[in-house]
Computed example of a mutant assay.
Amino acid sequence: MSLELLFAFVAFAFVTSITPGPNNLMLLASGVNFGVRRSMPHMAGVCIGFTVMVAVVGLGLSQVFERMPVLHLVLRYVGAAYLLYLAWKIAYATSPAGDGQGGTRPLTFLQAAGFQWVNPKAWVMAIGAIATYTPQGNFTLNVMLIALVFGLVNAPSIGLWTITGSLLRHWLEHPRARRTFNIGMALLLVASLYPIVSEMGLTHS
Score class of each variant (00 low, 15 high):
144 M>Y: 13
34 F>I: 11
135 P>N: 07
184 G>Q: 12
106 P>I: 14
109 F>P: 01
49 G>Q: 11
159 G>L: 13
186 A>V: 00
122 A>N: 09
1 M>E: 10
74 V>P: 10
177 A>H: 12
65 F>T: 10
21 G>R: 07
192 S>D: 08
109 F>L: 01
129 A>Y: 12
1 M>P: 03
196 I>W: 12
193 L>Q: 02
114 G>D: 04
189 L>E: 02
29 A>Q: 07
169 R>D: 07
1 M>T: 01
77 Y>G: 08
205 S>R: 14
15 V>M: 15
100 G>M: 09
125 M>L: 14
153 V>A: 09
187 L>H: 06
115 F>C: 00
116 Q>L: 02
74 V>C: 14
89 K>D: 04
90 I>V: 15
29 A>L: 09
136 Q>A: 14
102 G>K: 06
176 R>A: 13
152 L>M: 13
127 I>Y: 15
140 T>N: 14
78 V>Y: 08
155 A>R: 00
160 L>W: 11
20 P>W: 09
59 L>S: 12
69 P>M: 10
117 W>G: 00
165 G>Y: 05
159 G>D: 06
123 W>H: 06
35 G>M: 03
94 T>E: 14
198 S>R: 14
73 L>G: 10
111 Q>R: 01
161 W>K: 10
118 V>S: 01
104 T>Q: 15
5 L>E: 02
85 Y>T: 09
128 G>L: 11
44 A>L: 15
18 I>Y: 02
63 Q>H: 11
134 T>I: 07
149 V>K: 11
20 P>M: 10
125 M>D: 04
131 A>S: 15
128 G>W: 07
177 A>N: 10
171 W>P: 03
192 S>R: 08
177 A>F: 07
67 R>L: 13
11 A>Q: 15
203 T>I: 12
162 T>W: 02
123 W>T: 00
88 W>H: 14
164 T>L: 12
81 A>V: 09
46 V>S: 05
98 G>N: 05
200 M>I: 11
1 M>F: 05
100 G>I: 07
66 E>I: 12
153 V>L: 11
109 F>K: 03
35 G>E: 01
69 P>E: 08
4 E>D: 13
104 T>G: 06
171 W>E: 04
92 Y>K: 14
86 L>W: 08
177 A>C: 04
167 L>H: 01
183 I>K: 08
3 L>F: 09
195 P>Y: 09
15 V>D: 12
179 R>F: 14
100 G>W: 00
10 V>K: 02
149 V>C: 14
202 L>A: 08
13 A>K: 03
195 P>S: 05
25 L>N: 00
205 S>V: 14
135 P>W: 04
72 H>Q: 11
79 G>M: 08
94 T>F: 01
66 E>A: 15
22 P>G: 10
152 L>I: 12
125 M>G: 07
116 Q>E: 01
178 R>Q: 12
51 T>E: 15
142 N>W: 07
180 T>Q: 09
93 A>H: 05
58 G>A: 05
201 G>L: 07
146 I>R: 11
65 F>A: 06
195 P>R: 06
